[in-house]
């Protein structure tokens, strides 16, 4: 008989993030579909966990367990791993479901190793067929999807963000069993956070639109000269006006390392594609970017896609975008900015 443990950590303010709520709805569904499985067990990790547990009180979980303490107010491998391992050992689940946050992506693989389990990450779908849990997960940087199941337990599943609906439900009062844990001595001190970019223009998960700037922005324009400063201005203006998330192709951000004149606010963190991110936005607009396959795999979860490129034969025109405008992106985006500015 399968038993499901849902693991979550609190955010710095003690609340639960959206990925955690998404993973919860997936875990609840899984526990429900597994015939004869007891209701879900919830395991919480954080500085304080009661508030978070209360927020989930109405989800129908059978049991709440928690590990709390000052050490767990921050994201750190040694303390997180100790806490998660203690919860798994206390709950003795066969399936462990959690969101692939940066914190759990770092800690849970090691926990899995510690408790002798197996782990799958990049999970985008859970299903139960004849009492057998099955998952869909991605390989080769989102280029291949596999449906699989496995015999080993406990089986850890790290769920990709945005793949499941976030759980919504009544708060209440949850009774949290405190699970004791021997906190290991740690040699790591978490100092804080800093913005990865000097500029506020980054990939913003909440944005509706992804704007991708390709290497063409820094290349020679019709007058035979590059116009990098103008390009920067045009892009910033648009991203501000449209409240868009800003991404780039690899070739654009690689130029920095090649000593070329580049867009000053672009770094590898903006890079969308095989060696970059795979953001989720409803719409995406690619400009001056050729739409090569390794870049477009990063668009896997962009629903509506448009592109502006001077080359009608570019990748976007070959079934990778819904609309390809064969035009000069400098001209078009300048005009778009004008129109957005008018309103």
């Amino acid at each position: 008989m399968e038993t499901v443990l849902y693991l979550t950590h609190t955010e710095s303010d003690g609340s639960l993030g959206k990925p955690a709520l998404e993973a919860l709805s997936a875990a609840l569904q899984l526990a429900q579909e597994l015939d004869g499985a007891p209701p879900l067990t919830i395991g919480l990790i954080g500085g304080e966990v009661q508030a978070a547990a209360d927020a989930l009180a109405g989800c129908g979980a059978g049991r709440f367990m928690g590990v709390a303490g000052a050490e767990l107010a921050v994201s750190r491998y040694s303390s997180d791993a100790a806490a998660a391992a203690a919860l798994v050992e206390a709950a003795q689940p066969t399936l462990v479901v959690a969101a692939a946050t940066s914190r759990f992506s770092r800690a849970l693989p090691g926990v899995c190793q510690r408790v002798g389990g197996r782990i799958d990450t990049q999970v985008t779908e859970l299903q139960v067929v004849d009492t057998e849990p099955r998952i869909e997960r991605w390989y080769y940087r989102q280029r291949m999807a596999a449906t699989l199941t496995r015999s080993q337990r406990p089986w850890f599943l790290l769920l990709a963000g945005g793949a499941f609906p976030a759980w919504e439900g009544e708060a209440g009062t949850a009774e949290v069993e405190a699970v004791p844990v021997d906190m290991p001595e740690t040699r790591t001190r978490v100092v804080g956070t800093q913005s990865a970019s000097a500029d506020a223009h980054t990939i913003r998960p909440e944005a509706d639109l992804l704007f991708v700037a390709g290497a063409g922005w820094t290349k020679k324009q019709v007058d035979g000269q590059p116009h990098v400063t103008e390009a920067e201005q045009c892009i910033r203006e648009f991203v501000d006006a449209a409240q868009a998330s800003l991404g780039s192709s690899k070739s654009l951000v690689d130029q920095g390392g090649e000593g070329q004149q580049v867009l000053s606010f672009m770094s590898h963190l903006h890079q969308v594609g095989q060696t970059g991110t795979t953001p989720r936005h409803r719409k995406g607009l690619a400009t001056c970017c050729h739409g090569e396959e390794p870049h477009v795999v990063g668009w896997r979860f962009i629903t509506e896609r448009r592109a502006i490129n001077l080359d009608a034969g570019c990748g976007w025109g070959q079934g990778k975008a819904d609309v390809l405008y064969v035009a000069d992106a400098f001209d078009v985006m300048t005009k778009v900015n004008e129109l957005l500015g008018e309103s």
């Binding site: 596999a146 699989l148 015999s151 819904d322 609309v323």
Partner: peptide
């Protein structure tokens, strides 16, 4: 211990309108 039931390359071919 892993049983792969299916491995596919998702087809994402769209009908591009080229303007």
């Amino acid at each position: 211990g892993v049983k792969f039931l299916d491995v596919t390359v998702p087809r994402q071919q769209r009908d591009t309108r080229i303007v």
